[in-house]
């Protein structure tokens, strides 16, 4: 196998890794976003205990999410998301505008993590 063929193979591998990273980031963000959505649904239903349980599930899922996302996404973005998550539990004791606002911020950050990875012309430029 000469250098040219090796380069073609590596280039193919890089394309596969890029596509795989996009798929992995998309999957993780959807899963994690769904957990945040559960908290929102519980708050909508006025069930703060369920919201707290949904948060606990989110907390339990964090390690797996962080391990995968840490491979592809800058650490500072994940730290910001983690900081937003840490501020959520005290606000979940009751359905307040502050709790809604913190949850919305968390959901937007998760969405942004995926959107920034999408190779759209605006992100490329």
């Amino acid at each position: 196998m000469n250098r040219f063929h090796m380069s073609l193979a590596v280039a193919g591998l890089l394309v596969a890794v890029s596509a795989g990273s996009l798929a992995a980031v998309g999957y993780e963000c959807r899963q994690f976003g769904a957990l945040a959505q559960d908290i929102g649904d519980a708050l909508d239903a006025g069930d703060t205990a369920r919201a707290r349980r949904a948060y606990d599930r989110m907390e339990a899922a964090w390690d797996g999410f962080h391990h995968v996302m840490g491979l592809f996404v800058e650490g500072t973005q994940l730290h910001e998301l983690r900081a937003d998550m840490a501020g959520l539990p005290p606000l979940l004791a009751e359905d307040t505008p502050e709790a809604r606002s913190a949850l919305a911020r968390l959901e937007k950050r998760i969405e942004a993590l995926y959107e920034e990875e999408v190779p759209s012309i605006w992100h490329i430029l």
Binding site: R3, M6, S7, A11, G75, T76
Partner: peptide, 25 residues
């Protein structure tokens, strides 16, 4: 910067080198 994933450093290096080898070929 340890905040940047290692993959984000390795991938462009290999991409540039592959482009160079393919272009030279």
């Amino acid at each position: 910067d340890t905040g940047i994933p290692l993959l984000c450093g390795i991938l462009p290096i290999l991409a540039l080198v592959c482009c160079e080898v393919i272009a030279s070929q």
